[in-house]
Simulated scan of single mutants.
Amino acid sequence: MYEEKIVVQNKSGLHARPASQLVELSQQYRSDVTILTEEDEINAKSIISVLAGGVLPGTEITLQVEGVDEAEAGAALSRFLHNLPD
């Protein structure tokens, strides 16, 4: 399993545009992709789940990726989350 703690650094968190981009990127991989916050377990392949998670700027999240392509997916998703667009 790939796991990494990340602090959301952009000005607006996972609002509609970056949430949509995250879901599109997650869906390119066969592995399960989960984002954990203190309150929620978010399925990163579901736009409803990501938007409902309400991830705000400064939130510490844990990215978990588990499956056949977890290393590749984890690296790509980590890069995306570290460089979230505003």
Rank of each mutant, 00 (worst) to 15 (best):
F80T: 03
S49T: 02
V7I: 12
D86C: 15
D69S: 09
V7Q: 12
Y29I: 01
P57D: 10
S12Y: 11
E39H: 07
A44C: 07
I47C: 10
L14R: 09
S26E: 05
V33L: 07
I35A: 09
S78W: 06
F80V: 05
G13Y: 11
A75Q: 14
V8Q: 01
I42V: 09
E60L: 06
S78F: 11
E39R: 05
V33C: 07
E24S: 15
V23H: 10
E66M: 11
H15Q: 13
G53W: 00
L22D: 15
L63N: 10
S26W: 04
V7C: 09
E38D: 11
H82S: 07
Q9E: 07
N43K: 05
L22T: 01
G13D: 10
T62L: 12
V65E: 04
T62S: 12
L51K: 06
L56G: 02
L77V: 05
D32M: 08
Q21A: 15
L81C: 00
D69N: 05
Q28N: 15
L63M: 08
E39N: 04
A44T: 03
E24L: 12
S31A: 09
A19G: 13
R30S: 04
Y29P: 04
E60S: 05
K5H: 14
E70D: 14
V65H: 00
A71T: 03
Q9S: 11
E4S: 11
P18R: 13
I42H: 09
D32C: 01
L22R: 11
V55Q: 02
Q9I: 04
E24Q: 14
